[in-house]
Design a protein around this nucleic acid. Structure first.
Ligand SMILES: [Mn+2]
Ligand SMILES: [Mn+2]
Ligand SMILES: [Zn+2]
Ligand SMILES: [Zn+2]
Lengths: 121, 121
DNA sequence: GAAATAAATAGTAATAATTCCTATTATTAA
DNA sequence: TTAATAATAGGAATTATTACTATTTATTTC
């Protein structure tokens, strides 16, 4: 994977926010710097960055969102303001439970708690 | 919501399997009983059944799957055979953690553990 | 530093999943 | 039975994403 200006900007933009942006939002931001970039280029690079482990892809319902935070963590999703908040929840218990009770070898834990964030009383 | 034959069959089909089927799979099955049913009807009814609380909609990556099991539960997803297995994991700890540490009011807990099921040694 | 090589791009077409639209049909209440 | 209207089939539209291709650009070689 050789250097490209567009990938560099895309990576910087994803790294600049905690909002877990969608491809479309990233596209809008990149255009401020590269007005004629194509949406396909944004998608291709977001995928490449994910494959290289530079960012993470997460799913919010049916749409993909991108996350600069690669360390294992979970999310709180506020269904009032839509915000996705990073949290680190203990999951050793869960891992052990499924290993013991279901003989299931866990490689990845995905936890999303949906509800109301503290901005709404 | 008044009675419809198509909705009845769709509901029965979702209730007949533990496989968390996609809309397309349900469509294929319903056609064995109602050959000229339309895919739109399948989607509309799956949504209505979800809204009425008769089934649940869950997301596996970007595609919706449907689940007859309405009681709160979690999923193990085997990335070898693709199976989604129902499990009940304790989450009181998680709820309390986010309530205390983030002042976040949880209404729904979504946990998916990805890995390898016991069918693969 | 120019030429050769091939990865990356812009622009656009294609696909997949899902929703919307509308004339017709079927369910239910009177 | 009839009237009111929810639901349907069939197809068009939408949304998110991927694929295609001629051209551009980064990197390597001389
Ligand atoms: Mn995150
Ligand atoms: Mn389930
Ligand atoms: Zn909020
Ligand atoms: Zn398996």
């Amino acid at each position: 994977m050789r250097y490209s200006h567009q990938r560099e900007i895309i990576s910087e933009i994803v790294h600049s926010t905690n909002s877990h942006p969608t491809a479309d939002w990233v596209y809008g931001e990149v255009r401020r710097y590269i007005p004629n970039i194509s949406l396909g280029t944004v998608y291709r690079n977001l995928k490449q960055l994910t494959d290289e482990g530079i960012i993470r892809t997460i799913y919010d319902g049916a749409v993909a969102r991108y996350d600069w935070n690669r360390s294992p963590h979970d999310h709180l999703k506020c269904n009032v303001c839509g915000e996705m908040i990073d949290v680190q929840l203990p999951n050793d218990g869960l891992r052990r439970t499924v290993k013991d009770e279901y003989d299931f070898e866990v490689s990845d834990v995905e936890i999303t708690l949906v509800g109301k964030c503290n901005k709404h009383a």
